[in-house]
Design a protein around this nucleic acid. Structure first.
Length: 182
DNA sequence: TAACATTCCGCGC
DNA sequence: GCGCGGAATGTTA
């Protein structure tokens, strides 16, 4: 049974920020994914397409509910990028993930702003102390960076590890939260 | 089965 | 003590 359906993105809306235009994808359950402004080459095909000009707002799908979510996302994203912490988390649709991934993502959301954890610590937290590498995979599969703070996860020696949208972004995000790099 | 956004251990210096 | 190479480990497509 692996007809696991990717969450249906019923519409994608642009979110303007001082770093560029993010793309927010909504399903009927909430925010289903967030795409960084296109800039860095990323190897994930889907992400690359997301910024393409197929972006339409279908008035029928633009329910009041989603309109409201988009407002929250816009507000909070801009707050965050200005160094404030997120106060109003929009509902997130994590149905794209496998059960394991969802466990990892939940663990990530418990990391307080300004803190970091290692892949190893996350692994231990969800009961798979040896699964650090698997945790890395789950982070890479994270559809909603920033709201799911996958950038707060570093290697156990303190170096950055990786980031699907490009390490540059990881640095930017961490810098916003008050970390320093030499 | 191969691939991965890690970690750990054992060497050689 | 520090740095490097290779094996172990869990999940996914």
């Amino acid at each position: 049974m692996n007809t696991r359906k990717i969450p249906q993105i019923i519409l994608q809306l642009p979110v303007k920020t001082k770093y560029g235009e993010f793309i927010a994808g909504f399903s009927e359950f909430g925010l289903a994914r967030l795409v960084f402004p296109k800039k860095q080459p990323c190897k994930n095909k889907e992400l690359q397409c997301a910024g393409a000009p197929g972006l339409k707002v279908n008035p029928e799908k633009l329910t009041e509910k989603i309109c409201n979510w988009q407002e929250i996302v816009t507000t909070e994203l801009n707050n965050y990028l200005n160094g404030k912490s997120i106060q109003n988390m929009p509902p997130l649709d994590l149905s794209a993930g496998t059960p394991f991934q969802q466990r990892v993502w939940k663990a990530l959301m418990e990391i307080p702003s300004g803190n970091t954890m290692s892949y190893n610590e996350i692994a231990a937290k969800i009961g798979k102390p040896q699964g650090a590498r698997a945790v890395g995979l789950a982070c890479g599969a994270n559809p909603i960076p920033i709201f799911i703070p996958c950038h707060r996860v570093l290697k156990s020696d303190g170096s950055l590890g990786g980031f699907s949208a490009g390490l540059t972004w990881k640095k930017i995000l961490l810098t916003i939260e008050g970390h320093k790099f030499d």
